[in-house]
Amino acid sequence: MFLDYKLPDMNGIEIIEKLGEHAKDLIIIMITAYASIEVAIEATRKGAYDFLPKPFTPNELRTVTRKAAERILLARKNAQLAHEKKQVRFEFIRVLGHELKAPLGAVEGYLELMKTKTLGDNLDSYLQFIERSSIRLQQMRKLIVDLLDMTRLESGKKSRNLVAVDLRKAAENAIELATPAANARSISISLEAPATLSIMADVGEIDMMLNNLISNAVKYNRDEGKVMVRLEQTADNISVQVADTGIGMSAEEQQKLFKEFSRIKNAKTANILGSGLGLSILKRLAELYEGNISVASEPDQGTTFTLTIPLSKCAEASTT
């Protein structure tokens, strides 16, 4: 709105005052022949965006108008971004709510079956219910832990302590952690790595990344399958490659992989527990090191995840 200062009944500033709250949604440019600093300041304070002294040249008018138009565009863009962010958040909470309610519903259901002694008086008949309930609760706990990890990463408040970490040692530890689950299904895990591979990193973050990759490779494997962990240092990068011989996934499924809660649900994954947050945490962690995580997969053949971190980001004395 171009608003003249000197008007028959009221002046421009009085109009801005009258507009009150509505003035906020408008871009007001005051035009006046009585250009004085005071009027300009007062008009701006009351909500005018700019000021154009009379007489003005077409060029001046053009400049002022362009400035205002740019501002309108920027404001619209910001509003749209804020709206999209809200939508993403809304969707996240919706799915999270569902993921948290489902295990509670299952446990409540089993408790109800026990309370009403659906299967008679013998306690042994109910062991299966108890087993299923504790699996669902475990899963729920994992979801909450992952959620907290992710929130901490997002907030940037997690204190990071960068020290020299031996990646080989860290990988060995992660493999040890995954071994019971692997043994239970006769899956073998191999490691191929230099004798030591030292990088500057946060121990907790490195463990989280390796545990995530290796436990996934076991979870989504077939019985008697293989997990191959390979650490490598090239001239520019350090790479961690974890390959499995598992169920794999289609190109379409790979696209959705790193999104929150995008756990791929199909007959093959129906009995595999997961929070649906592991890979989005992994991606965020990789970003902290300006690294990258990529996936190559073939249905029923296996999947290979490759984490690459630029040496410049983690080079300590990357000797050996």
Binding site: G105, A106, G109, Y110, T118, L119, R132, K265, A270
Partner: peptide, 16 residues
């Protein structure tokens, strides 16, 4: 339902 436990629980309830 894709929730195995939900199916199991209600199956038992209704079978009874």
């Amino acid at each position: 339902d894709d929730d195995k436990d939900f199916v199991e629980i209600n199956k038992m309830l209704l079978e009874k």
